[in-house]
Every structure is written in C-alpha cells, then in structure tokens.
Amino acid sequence: MTIEAIQEELIDEFSMFDDWMQRYEYMIELGKSLPLIDENLKTDDKLIKGCQSKVWLNSEMKNGKIIFTADSDAIITKGIIAVLVRVFSNQKPQAILDANTDFIDEIGLKEHLSPTRANGLVSMIKQMKMYALAYQTQLNN
C-alpha cells in the first residue's frame, strides 16, 4: 500500500468516532499493535529527544524498504507512534521523504503537533525522515 492509501485508510477509521474519548481509546488499542523494538535495541542512541515519555525508534532496510520498530513507556504516545509506523514502515526511503503529514490534522491529532505537548510527535516524524534521508543517501552513492 502507498503512504497516501494508508493515510486515507486512517482518516476513514478515525472518522467513525464521535468524540475524543473513543478516539483516544482507539489510539490506545493501536498502541498495543505497535511492532515492538527489540529489548536489546532500547539504547540511548535510539531514544527520540524532546519527548516527555521515552520513545525508542529503530529502523532497518529490507528489500529496499525501511522497517520501523518502536516502543514507548506511555500508552498514548505508543498509540501515536503506532499510527506513524503504520504509515511510514515498509516504505521506500524516497516515498517517506516525499510524504506530507496533513493526515495528522484530519484524524484529530493536531493538538499533539504543538511543541508544548512535548510528546515528540514532531520529533518522531523528523527522526523517521532522517532515517529515510540516511538510507536514500546510501542508495544514491
């Protein structure tokens, strides 16, 4: 599936909820489905800075696509990162670099984009794009 198609799918899913509580409950559910990072990869260099909760993010290249795994000690943060992993994992580096992130607004997670929330949604996206850039640079060389 393309990044755009997955984003559309998420927008569809989230549009079913009438209120924030259902949305949050769904995010908590999504958090449980997050492909977890290997325990031995939970090292400081995998931590994303700028989060109130801890977020570890790992990436590896398989058949020209980036596979992300992650974890967090906070449940809602885990849900947020599960959404991002669903969108960006198993995609080509260039596609991740080209993707826009407007869907976050549309699924009602805009408030998490504010830097004051300090949950690091912005940092998470940045880190994923950084990995994509690094892999893309490798491919170009």
């Binding site: 924030w20 949050y24 909760s53 906070a74 449940i75 809602i76 943060t77 929330r117």
Partner: peptide
C-alpha cells in the same frame, strides 16, 4: 503502572 504523561493528556481533554 501508568505514565504521568498519559494521565495529563486525558485530564486535559
């Protein structure tokens, strides 16, 4: 068993 951030995010709502 609950991260303080999660509590803060929900009570804000």
């Amino acid at each position: 068993g609950i991260h303080p951030y999660d509590i803060g995010a929900i009570v804000d709502k």
